[in-house]
């Protein structure tokens, strides 16, 4: 019984995707909307081919990925160490928690006017927005993960006369790695959401710009190609982060 279900389950994603495509085709054929308002799957597929052939798609995708990578990298490099410090120090926690909690709910997009004013036009404001989107969640998650470390492990460290560096390398970092990976996975998704929005305002390249530019040219087929590529890259990024979280450094938890 469960064996049978499992065998069918493998084909279900294929079935549901085909179902959506058929539905899409039906709606675009019979809804009465013109191709300019709702292009059908075939029109979008041919637009896809066009944009791949002339290199536009690759160029825009690379531009977006570059901004996400840069902003995310800076957020990780600053956010995780700061999170560890906050997690370990009551004084820092008391001082910075209110500020971080205040900044966190402000959408990175609300920063767009200031970001453009401070960093001008180009990659910098977009990278800054990505940084903001990932930085605060990473600081908070890391600090929470550090505080959740079983105090017994710090007593073991004291009992075995660990140096500060050993406490960091042998207790704190391995203990928080699983939680931090979960936080990284979530932050990458947020960063990817934000980059597209940021590119609609501040820059002349990237998938967000592609969509905005296509809208201005009333090319809804290009708009949909942009959306599909954003979705595919988002899935790929998430998958990549999931793969990273199955690395050897997590073997001690056992397979969950």
């Amino acid at each position: 019984m469960s064996d049978k279900t499992e065998r069918y389950a493998r084909y279900l994603p294929l079935a549901s995707v085909s179902g959506i495509l058929v539905l899409w085709q039906l709606i675009s054929s019979f809804s009465g909307w013109s191709e300019n308002v709702l292009p059908g799957p075939w029109a979008v597929a041919s637009a896809f081919g066009e944009l791949i052939a002339n290199g536009t798609l690759l160029q825009h995708a690379v531009a977006s990925l570059f901004r996400v990578t840069a902003g995310f990298y800076i957020a990780v490099m600053l956010g995780i160490p700061l999170g560890i410090l906050i997690g370990r120090s009551l004084a820092l926690r008391s001082a910075l928690d209110p500020i971080i909690n205040f900044m966190r709910p402000i959408s990175p997009l609300a920063w767009i006017p200031l970001a453009m004013l401070w960093f001008g036009i180009g990659d910098k404001p977009a990278v800054f927005l990505i940084f903001l989107s990932s930085f605060f969640p990473l600081v908070t998650s890391t600090a929470v993960a550090v505080r959740r470390i079983n105090p017994t492990y710090f007593q073991v460290a004291a009992n075995f006369c660990f140096s500060r560096k050993e406490v960091l390398m042998k207790v704190i970092l391995p203990a928080i790695t699983p939680d931090v990976f979960t936080a990284l996975r979530i932050s990458v998704s947020i960063a990817w959401l934000v980059v597209v929005a940021a590119e609609m305002i501040a820059v002349q390249s990237g998938l967000g710009y592609l969509i905005l530019d296509a809208r201005n040219g009333l090319r809804m087929d290009y708009v949909m190609v942009g959306m599909i590529v954003i979705g595919l890259i988002g899935v790929a990024l998430d998958h990549l982060m999931l793969q990273l979280s199955h690395m050897d450094s997590m073997a001690w938890r056992g397979r969950v």
Binding site: T152, Y153, V156, V171, P174, A175, T177, S249, W252
Partner: peptide, 9 residues
């Protein structure tokens, strides 16, 4: 330790 003090990683 009463509950394991082994470092699980």
């Amino acid at each position: 330790f009463q509950h394991s003090g082994l470092l699980p990683w």
